[in-house]
C-alpha cells in the first residue's frame, strides 16, 4: 500500500539532511538573495516619461529578473536535493543551471517567469497607468489586484513546485515533457504541499522579528522539506 509521509515526517527528514550542512545552505541562500536583489536594483533605476514605455520596461524587467531568479532557484533545488539524497553539496552548485543543460534551464525559467508575469500583469498595468499622485485614490483596487496576483502566482508555484527537481533528475527530457510531468506528478498532492508550507508559518514570525536574518535558516528548513517532499513523491509513484 502506497503511503506518503505527512508534514511532521518530512520536516524530520529535512532537519536530518541539514545537520552538518547549514553553513553551505545558509551561505547559498544569502548569495541567492543578494544576487536577486542586485538584479532588481540594477534595473530599478530605469525610468521613462511615457506610460506605454514605462509599462513595457516594467514587464521586461519583471521577466528578466524572474528568469534569472528561477535559474538560481534551480541551483538551490540542486543543493537541497543532493542533501536529501545524502550526497555532499557545495556553494558553487548554486550556479549549476548556468553550466549544465543551460538551454533547458533557461526555457523552464522563462516559462515560469512568463506564468508569474501573467499573474501580476493587471497590477503592473495599473501601477504604470496610474500616476504616483493618483494611486492613493485607487489603493483598494491596487490591494485587490496585488492579493489576486499573489494568490494566482502562489498557485502556479505550487503546481510547478517539482519542475526544478525533475529537470535535475531527468536532464534528457525536453522542457515540454518536464512541464507536463511536473503538473502530473503533483496532481493530488498540492494540498499536502500547501499544508507543509503552512506548517512553517510560525517560524516565519521569527523571520519578521529578526528583520529577515533568521529567514536564512527558516528558508533552509523550508527548502530542505520541499526536497524531502520530492524524494517521498518519487519513492512512491512512477514518473
Amino acid at each position: 500500500m502506497i503511503s506518503f509521509k505527512d508534514s511532521r515526517a518530512l520536516r524530520a527528514d529535512a532537519r536530518e539532511s541539514l545537520l552538518g550542512h547549514l553553513t553551505t545552505t545558509v551561505t547559498a541562500l544569502l548569495l541567492y538573495m543578494f544576487s536577486t536583489s542586485v538584479l532588481a536594483e540594477m534595473v530599478n533605476g530605469l525610468d521613462s516619461g511615457s506610460v506605454l514605455l514605462s509599462l513595457a520596461l516594467s514587464v521586461m524587467v519583471f521577466f528578466v529578473v524572474n528568469t534569472c531568479g528561477y535559474m538560481l532557484r534551480i541551483g538551490l533545488a540542486y543543493i537541497f536535493m543532493r542533501l536529501a539524497f545524502r550526497q555532499g553539496a557545495r556553494l558553487g552548485d548554486l550556479f549549476c543551471a548556468f553550466r549544465k543543460n543551460s538551454n533547458t534551464a533557461v526555457t523552464l525559467s522563462g516559462f515560469m517567469a512568463l506564468l508569474e508575469l501573467f499573474c501580476m500583469l493587471p497590477l503592473i498595468f495599473s501601477l504604470s497607468v496610474l500616476s504616483a499622485q493618483g494611486r492613493s485614490a485607487y489603493s483598494v483596487l491596487l490591494a485587490v489586484l496585488f492579493a489576486a496576483g499573489f494568490a494566482a502566482a502562489f498557485y502556479v508555484r505550487l503546481r510547478y513546485a517539482m519542475l526544478a527537481y525533475l529537470h535535475l533528475d531527468f536532464p534528457d527530457l525536453t522542457p515540454r515533457q518536464l512541464i507536463r510531468g511536473s503538473a502530473k506528478l503533483i496532481r493530488g498532492h498540492k494540498m499536502r504541499l500547501f499544508k507543509l508550507y503552512l506548517s512553517f508559518l510560525p517560524l516565519q514570525l521569527l523571520t519578521v522579528l529578526s528583520l529577515g536574518i533568521a529567514g536564512l535558516w527558516v528558508s533552509s528548513y523550508t527548502q530542505a522539506a520541499t526536497a524531502a517532499f520530492y524524494k517521498d513523491l518519487m519513492a512512491n509513484r512512477a514518473f
Partner: peptide, 21 residues
Amino acid sequence: VVLPYIFGSVSLIMAILSRGR
C-alpha cells in the same frame, strides 16, 4: 529592542534544527 529579537530568533531556529530526526 533589536538584538534580543535577532539573537533569540536565530537561537530558536537553530535549537529546532539541532533535533534532527
